[in-house]
Computed example of a mutant assay.
Amino acid sequence: MKRLLAALLLTCASVGASAEPAAPRAIWTWEEDSYAMLEQPAAASRAIDFLKSKSIDTVFLYADAFGGRNLIKEQPQLYRRLVRRLHASGMKAYALLGSGYLHTERYVLPKHRAEALAMLQRVLDYNKAAAPEERFDGINVDIEPHILAEWSTRKIALLREFVELSDALMAAKRASGQSLPMGPAIPFWLDGLNVEYKGVTKPVSQHVQDLYDYVALMDYRDRALGGDGIVSHAMDELTYADKAGKQVLIGVETLPNAIKKVSFEHLREADMERELGITAKTVGGMKPFGGFVIHHYGQYRKWLGLD
């Protein structure tokens, strides 16, 4: 089904796609960069100017502990200031939850469920106390069970626990009475793994899309077309989202990777813009397509030779 739909859509794609930004864009902004933007107004100004120049309209801003501090809990005024600035610049701000520093991949395990819920609750509490112009517009959850050491021996069990965690997080958001959209970062290959949840067996990606408001698909490839391209790998999620009334953001990578096809790092900015343009022309007519998300702010600048 994926390849058939991709083949049909490819007939609409133009290999000579324009390099102009063709769809909304977001960017993951991790611990160090986010804390710098929060604590240093000059760093925030530099980031805002850069992001505007790249037509990025949504910042996934890290909103948890780092370096022994938790600014959203201890100094929420810093988030209020930065979110106000982002909004004044025409950008949205999503709270980014998940951290290599905190090893949040463990949060899929039932014994760490309370930590995951507390992580989310801090953002919900922040939003409840903030003025409208200071509130997050959404939440992105980046918890990746495949990083765990036991992944090779407990894959299906861990994925089921990931779905259970997703259900619990969305229940907590609903209980808060807040309507801000929440979704996870998920790898494109989850559509090839089935798990049983609440008596229904189907791809993990579909369980996740049923639960969340959107997904940010880690669709890490360096070309748009072909059987191993961005479009093909996103097609199952886009097709299912169309039925479920959900949204899909397509994520791309700029970090170095030993497997070259995973990232645009070995290519030029013009190459990435060409491939994103082709992708947008190919799937842009699909209602669930919500644009792109780039990984990640600090590396994106470095790749472009700015740092």
Rank of each mutant, 00 (worst) to 15 (best):
R3H: 15
L4Y: 12
A6F: 08
A6M: 13
A6S: 15
A7W: 08
A7D: 14
A7I: 13
L10K: 12
L10S: 15
L10M: 09
T11Q: 14
A13V: 00
A13R: 07
V15H: 11
V15M: 05
V15A: 14
V15D: 08
G16C: 10
G16P: 00
G16K: 09
S18D: 10
A19L: 14
E20P: 00
E20V: 10
A23F: 10
A26G: 14
I27R: 05
T29F: 01
T29I: 02
W30T: 02
W30K: 00
W30L: 09
E31L: 06
E31W: 10
E31G: 04
D33A: 14
Y35T: 00
A36L: 13
L38D: 03
L38Y: 10
L38T: 07
E39P: 02
E39G: 09
E39L: 12
Q40E: 11
Q40M: 07
Q40H: 14
A42L: 14
A42M: 14
A43R: 15
A43T: 05
S45N: 15
S45W: 03
R46L: 07
R46W: 00
R46Q: 13
R46P: 06
A47K: 02
L51C: 05
L51W: 12
K52R: 14
K52Y: 01
K52F: 04
K52Q: 14
S53D: 10
S53V: 10
K54E: 12
K54L: 12
K54D: 07
S55K: 06
S55F: 06
I56R: 02
D57N: 13
D57H: 09
D57C: 13
T58P: 10
V59I: 13
A63K: 08
D64S: 15
D64E: 15
F66I: 10
F66L: 11
G68Y: 07
R69I: 08
R69H: 13
N70P: 09
L71M: 13
L71T: 04
K73Y: 06
E74I: 03
E74F: 09
Q75K: 11
Q75S: 07
P76S: 04
P76G: 02
L78M: 10
L78S: 04
L78F: 00
Y79E: 10
Y79F: 14
Y79H: 08
R80D: 01
R81I: 01
L82A: 02
V83F: 03
V83L: 08
V83D: 00
V83A: 01
V83E: 01
V83C: 00
R85D: 08
L86W: 05
L86R: 01
L86G: 01
H87Y: 11
H87V: 06
A88K: 12
S89D: 05
G90W: 04
G90T: 01
M91Q: 15
K92G: 13
A93Y: 01
Y94H: 13
Y94I: 01
Y94S: 00
L96V: 05
L96F: 05
G100Y: 09
Y101N: 14
Y101A: 11
